[in-house]
């Protein structure tokens, strides 16, 4: 049974697609050469599903196309060339780059609205140092 939304109360929370290039349990060191792209569908602070896309190609643009095809909203990644960052931002993606640490912890920080570019998390979780890694203009 579906509940009709009450007037003045927005019950619709938009699904957000988040991509994180991963190397095992940690974020991959370089977006352009990552071998696995994990794509999460989230709503609010909840993860609805996760799909891991293995990538064999060494062509960086294939990763950009994958993000487009999968209608990704946000990319959370480790290192990336400036040119790709500008390209993705120009295409309307939110890019949070030069982060490091566990994928799970980074995603959790993002969903709580605390993840900023350059965040470095210790490998086994913890407070981390937001924005300590690299100065990125956003």
């Amino acid at each position: 049974m579906r509940l009709a939304p009450r007037q003045g109360c927005n019950l619709e929370v938009r699904n957000v697609r988040i991509a994180i290039p991963r190397m095992g349990e940690t974020v991959a060191p370089c977006f352009e050469y990552c071998c696995t792209m994990a794509i999460y569908t989230t709503t609010g602070r909840h993860i609805l599903d996760q799909i891991d896309f293995p990538i064999r190609s060494r062509e960086p643009l294939d990763r950009v196309r994958l993000l487009r095809d999968q209608k990704v909203d946000t990319l959370i990644c480790g290192g990336m060339q400036d040119v790709f960052e500008k390209m993705l931002q120009g295409s309307g993606f939110e890019v949070i780059s030069w982060v490091s640490g566990s994928v799970e912890d980074l995603l959790d920080m993002y969903l709580r609205g605390r993840l900023v570019p350059g965040t470095e998390l210790p490998e086994h979780g913890g407070a981390g140092i937001p924005g300590e890694g690299r100065t990125t203009e956003h």
């Binding site: 190397m23 991959a28 060191p29 370089c30 352009e32 050469y33 071998c35 480790g78 490091s100």
Partner: peptide, 12 residues
């Protein structure tokens, strides 16, 4: 080292 070099060889 992967966090410093961000190399194409880190994964392969």
């Amino acid at each position: 080292c992967s966090e410093v070099f961000h190399s194409d060889l880190c994964e392969r």
